[in-house]
Nucleic acid binder design. Structure first.
Lengths: 148, 148
DNA sequence: CGGTAATGTATTTGTATCAGATACATTAAC
DNA sequence: GTTAATGTATCTGATACAAATACATTACCG
């Protein structure tokens, strides 16, 4: 079972940005296909990072940023931490071996650079871009179904 | 416990490329800091991809590619599969919801593009580059210890 | 003021993944 | 033929993630 908090977060944010009405954690859970508790757990991360606002007892969660100003990188970092750590280096290389002694510090910069490129790519797109594509997809689907 | 096969593979390949003598899975396990069975499991993947050659009963594993011609991407793909799948999309979005219905196909291209950038970065460096840095690190360590 | 409904959060459980460990068949070398 | 190595299967323990449950806290509404 691998971590899906990121795409769940995107899903939640798209819903909040596009829904005309207030959505509670139960509504979101239904759309995402999970349970409300998990939704609230992911939302807590988004809230900690100032992306959304919500209140105990009060239904409705507000998006605090304009979709154009919310990059996919910012969302990723909110749910998975600031440093994108894709690669895990093995823990116990032998310090008595010349290779084992230095492998971590030597390999790290190569992997870090790759992760930096990944970050840059995520920074280039925003929640608004996702929403735009979603609208296109919905139109295409509708067009397709009407011609059937 | 996250997957460390990739850096273990790099470690193994550095050892094979730089060691003047034959290394068996036990030697490698000691340097990596794990057990020989796991080393052989990772080596099986490298062998499947034509990166190394080995034989039952016969000690010594050969590197089939020149370190300059073996990119870090190729190593990654050998142990983790050809498509780099960093991001997992949640499995059960609600098809009855306009967002849930399309979220997968819409989000995928954004994530895929980011993964493509990651691949490109990995493709830019080779095993030889890692070995070069390792030699530098070893020299620096030695220099440092002599001046102490 | 009391009841309802929502969030926020802790805890437990089920499950998947990874690496460690063990075992053993197969094969090469001597 | 014995020894030692690889190749591979299987079991176990640890860890991580999400599902599920529970409940305190708080806002809203009568």
């Amino acid at each position: 079972m691998r971590d899906t908090k990121y795409t769940v977060a995107i899903h939640i944010l798209v819903m909040l940005a596009t829904s005309p009405r207030d959505l509670n954690s139960d509504d979101l859970a239904r759309s995402v296909g999970t349970n409300a508790s998990y939704i609230r757990k992911v939302m807590a991360l988004l809230k900690d990072h100032g992306i959304i606002a919500s209140q105990r007892g009060k239904s409705g969660t507000r998006l605090l940023k304009r979709p154009e100003a919310l990059s996919l990188l910012e969302i990723y970092q909110a749910v998975n931490g600031d440093d994108v750590e894709i690669f895990q280096i093995h823990q116990n290389p032998n310090p008595a071996c010349p290779v084992g002694k230095n492998i971590k510090q030597v390999v790290f910069p190569f992997l870090d650079e790759a992760e930096r490129q990944l970050k840059e790519a995520l920074a280039k797109n925003s929640l608004a871009d996702v929403i735009d594509r979603l609208k296109q997809a919905a139109e295409d689907t509708d067009a397709g179904s009407t011609t059937d």
